[in-house]
C-alpha cells in the first residue's frame, strides 16, 4: 500500500465508554469513564474548546489547552479504566473527551447518559439521538463523538429539510415520468 495512503493504525482500542451528563442550574457535570481493551501507560483525550464552555477539570489527570482544544492525559486505574470529571457552563453544545485511540470496530459500546433538570426532556433534534431510560435519557453509539448538542429551542428546519427532501424526490419522480419519453428512440 502506498505510504501516503496508509491510515494510522491504532495499537490500542476502547472496549467501552460511559459518559454521564447531569444538568445543574448553572451548567453541566460530566463524568467520563473509558475502559481500554489494552490499557496504555498514559491515556490521552482531546476535548474541543467550544466558545464559552469554561471547563474545570477534576480527577487524576493533566489538562493542557492547545489552540482550540484541550489535551487530557492521565494514568489508568487498577481495573483498566480511566475516569475523570469536569464542569461546563450552560451551553447548547457540550464538549466530550475523545480518546486518541478508536473504539473497537463493529460494536456499539459508547454509552451517554443524560439527566436533565426535572420536567425537561431533550429536544428531538438533539445529537446524538437520546431515548428514555431508567436513568433519564440514553444514547448508544459505536464511536465517541466530540460533542453533544442539546438545542434549547425547537429547530423545526430539520423537519422541514426532511419534508423538502421527500418533496424533491416526488417532483423528480414526476419529472422523470414526463421527460423519459423525450429521450426514448
Amino acid at each position: 500500500m502506498p505510504l501516503a495512503l496508509q491510515a494510522a493504525v491504532a495499537a490500542a482500542s476502547i472496549a467501552a465508554a460511559h459518559v454521564d451528563v447531569t444538568e445543574r442550574a448553572d451548567g453541566f457535570d460530566i463524568v467520563a469513564t473509558y475502559r481500554y481493551a489494552t490499557a496504555p501507560d498514559t491515556a490521552r483525550f482531546t476535548i474541543i474548546d467550544l466558545p464559552g464552555s469554561e471547563l474545570s477539570f477534576s480527577g487524576p489527570i493533566d489538562a493542557v489547552r492547545l489552540g482550540a482544544h484541550w489535551l487530557i492525559t492521565g494514568g489508568g486505574e487498577p481495573d483498566g479504566a480511566v475516569r475523570f470529571s469536569y464542569r461546563t457552563a450552560h451551553l447548547s453544545r457540550l464538549p466530550l473527551p475523545v480518546p486518541t485511540v478508536p473504539a473497537a470496530s463493529g460494536t456499539r459500546q459508547v454509552l451517554i447518559d443524560l439527566r436533565l433538570r426535572p420536567g425537561t426532556i431533550p429536544s428531538p433534534e438533539s445529537f446524538p439521538r437520546f431515548a428514555p431510560s431508567a436513568e433519564g435519557h440514553r444514547a448508544l453509539l459505536a464511536n465517541v463523538p466530540s460533542l453533544i448538542q442539546l438545542p434549547q429551542q425547537s429547530t423545526p428546519w430539520l423537519r422541514y429539510l426532511e419534508a423538502a427532501v421527500l418533496l424533491l424526490i416526488a417532483l423528480a419522480a414526476l419529472a422523470w415520468n414526463r421527460l423519459r419519453p423525450l429521450s426514448a428512440p
Binding site: A7, V101, A103, P128, L141, N143, E162
Partner: peptide, 21 residues
Amino acid sequence: LFPVLPSEDQASSVMAFEVLP
C-alpha cells in the same frame, strides 16, 4: 464530530447513521 474512528473508510457511514435526521 468524530475525531477518532477505527478506519477513515467508516467516516461516511458513521456520519450518515449517527448525525443526520
